[in-house]
Amino acid sequence: MQSSNKGKNYQTILILIAIVYFTFILLIPVVTLIFEAFHKGFQPFLDSLQSVEFQEALKLTLIITAITLPLNTIFGLSAAWIIARNQFRGRALLLSIIDVPFSISPVVAGLMLVLLYGKNSWLGGILASVGIKIIFALPGMVLATMFVTLPFVAREIIPVLEEIGPQEEEAARILGASDWQIFWRVTIPNIRWGLLYGLLLTNARAMGEFGAVSVVSGSILGQTATLPIFVEQTYKNYQTEAAFSAAAILALLGLLTLIGKEFLERRVDN
C-alpha cells in the first residue's frame, strides 16, 4: 500500500513537471500569440489583413506553394517508386541524398542559390544578360522552397509503398493494365493517405519557410515578402499589430496542419 502511494506521488510530480515545462516553452507563447492578435478586438485584426503589403505577401506565398507542391509531388512519387520498388547499388546513398535538405541550415540553402544564380556568378551573369532574374525574384524563392521541402513527399510514401508490396501491381500487369493504368488505379489508391500526409507537410513548410526564402528574396514588403517574411519585416518596423495578425494566420495554418496530421496518421496506421 505504502509503495503504491509512493508510486502515485512520483507520477504526480512527473506529470506536474511535464505540464510546467510545456506551459513555459509552448503554451504561454501560443496563448500570447492569440492574445496579441485579437486583444483589440476582431476589427483591427481584419483591418491589418486589408493592407496592400499583406495581400501581396499572401498572394506571393500562395503562388510559391502552388508551384512547389505539384513539382515536389512528381519528384516524390518518382523517387519513392524507384527506391521502394527496386534494389540497386547506391539505393541507400540515394535515400541519404534525399534526406540532406532536412539537415542543412535554411540559410545555407539560400546561400547556395545566391552563389549559383546571383549576379556575381557566371550562370547568374548569363541569365541576367537574357533578362532572367532568379535571385531577389520569384524563381529564386521557388527554388529555395523546393530545396527545403524536397524530402517530404518521398519520405512519407516510401514506407507505405514498401509495406504494400508489388503484388497488386503485378496482378494488374498480368491482367493487361498499362503502366499508367496501374499507377492511377492501383498504386495511387493504395498510397493515398501517405501521399496526402506528405502533401500536408510540404504545404505547411512551403507556406511557412522563412530562412531560405529570406536569403534569396531581398525581403521587400509588397514585392518579395512572403507571409513569414512579412511577419519579420513588420515586427522590425514596429508594426506589431500587422505582425501578429499575419502570425495568427500562419499559426492557424499550423494548427490545421496538426489536426490534418492527427487525422492522417490514424489513416496511415490502419
Partner: peptide, 21 residues
C-alpha cells in the same frame, strides 16, 4: 498534439512570439 507545434509553426512566427513573451 501540441508537441509538434514547433514543426508546424513558421520560424519567424516562433521568433516573434518568443521575442514578445
Amino acid at each position: 498534439g501540441a508537441i509538434d507545434l514547433p514543426f508546424a509553426l513558421p520560424t519567424s512566427v516562433a521568433g516573434l512570439v518568443l521575442a514578445t513573451v
